[in-house]
Design a protein around this nucleic acid. Sequence first.
DNA 1: CCTTGCTCCTCACGCCGCGTGAGGTCCGTA
DNA 2: TACGGACCTCACGCGGCGTGAGGAGCAAGG
Lengths: 251, 251
Amino acid sequence: MSEIPLRVGELAARAGVTVRALHHYEEVGLLSPSRTAAGHRRYDAADVERLQQITSLRALGLGLDGVRAALDAPDFDPAAVVERHRAALDAEAARLGALAARLDALGRLLRQRALTGAPVDPDAFLTLTKAMTDVETHYTPEQLQQLADRREALGADAIRAVEAEWPRLFEALGKEMDAGTDPAAPAVQRLVDRWDELVGMFTGGDPGIRRSLGTAVEANRDGMSQMMGLDPDRMQALFAYAQDARDAREG
Amino acid sequence: MSEIPLRVGELAARAGVTVRALHHYEEVGLLSPSRTAAGHRRYDAADVERLQQITSLRALGLGLDGVRAALDAPDFDPAAVVERHRAALDAEAARLGALAARLDALGRLLRQRALTGAPVDPDAFLTLTKAMTDVETHYTPEQLQQLADRREALGADAIRAVEAEWPRLFEALGKEMDAGTDPAAPAVQRLVDRWDELVGMFTGGDPGIRRSLGTAVEANRDGMSQMMGLDPDRMQALFAYAQDARDAREG
DNA sequence: CCTTGCTCCTCACGCCGCGTGAGGTCCGTA
DNA sequence: TACGGACCTCACGCGGCGTGAGGAGCAAGG
């Protein structure tokens, strides 16, 4: 525990910061050590303590301005600082969460295409990505939040199960359609019921979200078919067939 | 749906980006429109499409380098890009989470001091902050993660309840100590049992974490007493009294 | 044809928290 | 006195634009 003032390198090593950072703190007027005659910096005990405070506040994620405010302002409300900063953190976390959601969705789509053997070349990737961001524009921020909540509530396993089921469902329904089965037939009805059930898991039964989903599909058939790994025309036909089945059910 | 090439301002408005951004994309070689004789930029349909791809990829959180890689590299693996980027996002989220945990802990301490009427002047704030970061150095990253998990498992309400209980517990135990009650007395035993119970909620019963907590307290009595809103000497005395009670229980 | 008012152009600095040299000086020890 | 290491001061770089400054093009009205 030497009491003699420290030189930059020594202080840097002890405090776990770089020499450059110490220089920088001095440049911005955060920490101003005394100098020797030759101009070498000397950090005394007070400087060391101030540096510790600086690093502590920095560890909270405060910017150097915030640190200066906390250290130099005589009137400053710690609780308010913590709260404001916490709010900023939350906002940032939300932003990251949104990005993560997008990436996850994209990852799901890529996995799906891998499952169905669809090509995943760069072009498809770009189309897919664009389709995804397009779709987002059809939901309000609140709805997107609801969707995220819904996914979290369902859990990753359930989502993966649904992902795996979709292509099979499409294929099965496509076979019935190709075979010319009556949309009112029980086999078709079961498939379409399951379809609606899966969609229901996704929408959480919210009619607003359902409507938005509808308009999103309407507005971007090509993108949606990309997302489903189907040919646009075939998707169109499948949707119509499923709608016939629903009409037959109700009427 | 005009098919004529767009001017910067128009494209910017439609695509939801700024003119400066379009200039920038051109500077870094991402999007190079043709020019009129006078040097004004003209964006044709291909340029518009490329911009859409750029904004889509940017919306995933990719940097401009990443965007260029995705758009210009003929061989590039979408899944790998998504996965790598997702991993980076997770790391960032973890960093934010750590910050949030620190801020929450600090917020708890500030609330606690407000409860007990202890002063929350800037100095106390700084000491507190420093004590917190000091304490962290006594835990391994794994242990810190465990503690975070534990807090999440307990939930905010339980934590708040515990927070409110601590000062009362200290006060009650302090009264017994001041009154000279035998540490083996049932009243004291009950209080110390509750003490250990609360600590157990925090540590999750992990002996490693308990040891680290012990060394942290040992190493920084002043800081810890700050965190508890007690005088260091009184904290010391309370700890000794509680230990006497534990010894009496076992022996 | 000229003016007006808008859009466009090209520099070029600023931000945030340092990292990373380059080129030169000082310090402690042999 | 010589040497190796620690120190010094510039000064640019990063990422993704924001924000002027200062000037020229463009469509429409007078």
